[in-house]
Design a protein around this nucleic acid. Structure first.
Lengths: 213, 213
DNA sequence: GCCGCAATTGGGGATGACCCTGAGAGATGC
DNA sequence: GCATCTCTCAGGGTCATCCCCAATTGCGGC
């Protein structure tokens, strides 16, 4: 396969040179940049497979580079490369869209491997760093858990309730479920009664508060 | 360092035997289980470093094992091992707390490496699978960002829109804002027209899709 | 079988929420 | 001065919503 193309973004020119010297044999470094604006320009110009992105740049965070390039032509992955191994930095960059995060203490051969894996769509993290992301992910998505209120509803009622909360009219729900409007009304009535709600609007608020939308 | 201890959970005894035969040289398999209850018992009894967990078990999902052991003594990591490489399964298990996810097509030596890395707190994924998690993570936190649709609304209209989307009746909004019902109706009408929506229900769906609730 | 119960499916009918058009008052800008 | 925009409100028509009511089906207990 042909060489993976890379743009290196770091505010220290000496560091960039070092990286290029180390990985230049196996990867094709098509561009370099020292600040956010130059980085964006370089990525747009060369459309590399992978962007090696320093987290701390003089004009801001590497996150900004990813965000401002979001929505652009796909196929470019970002690999964060930083001295920092703080959880906040890692999560921040990953949230923005980085596909990996390695510290600068990485060896040249490991860095090459990491870039090639990221270029293929895989995610790469230095040991321990992935744990930050997974913890944040698992914690951020505290899911369903048992809901006594929902338990009193029958299957059909729960189904109807979901549409109701999202703002679908009875008629629309009837079409969607293949039953008559009147039947939908019956279910809706049962839902309101069981949940002790007075109106359809109250149901929307109830569902929104539970993040059921 | 001493051998990493492992409990293997899979409903096929033959598969468990195969795993044990392959990894037994380098890792210490202290227990096995074929269903959810046995898995929980084994993990509690042996407190292994790593649990190799099949996703699909006869009595349910491997997720249940992780959930029912959550809050127990720490130090045990879960590594999902499945034939499925579906995004839902991967995200489901990671959300529950798995520290890695590899498919059953993995080689014995790679599996041993993966177990050892997970035992040290690192996260391990088969190629491509990590992308699912990162996409879900990044997608779960899509930030406000500028919204051209919202910009066309006046301050008052935005205010009314927020109530509308949450399911408040015109009368309630009027009371809340200290204006007449008729005024609220006018604002509501303007909101629908500007956002090109046909009804109040459509507005609720529009807002829900944008996480404005 | 037979009865009771719950779930699902409908109908009739009345209220009023919803949505449109139009319009006046005040503020701002050219 | 005139145009524009925003906020305010009213009249009026349509139909979504929500009440009470009933038939059908399936399931478990006696």
């Amino acid at each position: 396969m042909s060489k993976v193309t890379v743009v290196v973004v770091d505010d220290h020119e000496l560091f960039r040179s070092g990286v290029v010297a180390e990985i230049g044999e196996r990867l094709e470094v098509v561009g370099q940049a020292g600040d956010i604006d130059a980085a964006i320009e370089a990525v747009r110009a060369f459309a590399p497979d992978v962007v090696l992105l320093d987290v701390h740049l003089p004009s801001g965070s590497g996150r900004e580079v990813i965000e401002r390039l979001a929505g652009g032509p796909r196929g470019t992955y970002f690999l964060a490369l930083s001295v920092s191994d703080a959880a906040e930095d890692v999560i921040d960059l990953v949230r923005a869209g980085a596909r990996g995060y390695v510290t600068k203490s990485i060896s040249a051969s490991d860095l090459i491997d990491a870039v090639e894996r990221v270029a293929e769509g895989d995610a790469v993290f230095s040991p321990r760093l992935a744990g930050f992301v997974l913890d944040a992910f698992a914690g951020s998505a505290t899911v369903p858990e048992h809901d006594a209120d929902l338990d009193q509803l029958t299957d059909r009622e729960r189904e109807v309730m979901r549409f109701l909360a999202r703002g679908y009219a009875y008629k629309e729900i009837g079409l969607e479920l293949g039953i008559s409007v009147k039947t939908v009304e019956s279910h809706a009535s049962a839902v309101l009664r069981k949940l002790q709600l007075s109106s359809r609007g109250a149901l929307t608020r109830w569902a929104a508060a539970r993040r059921l939308l």
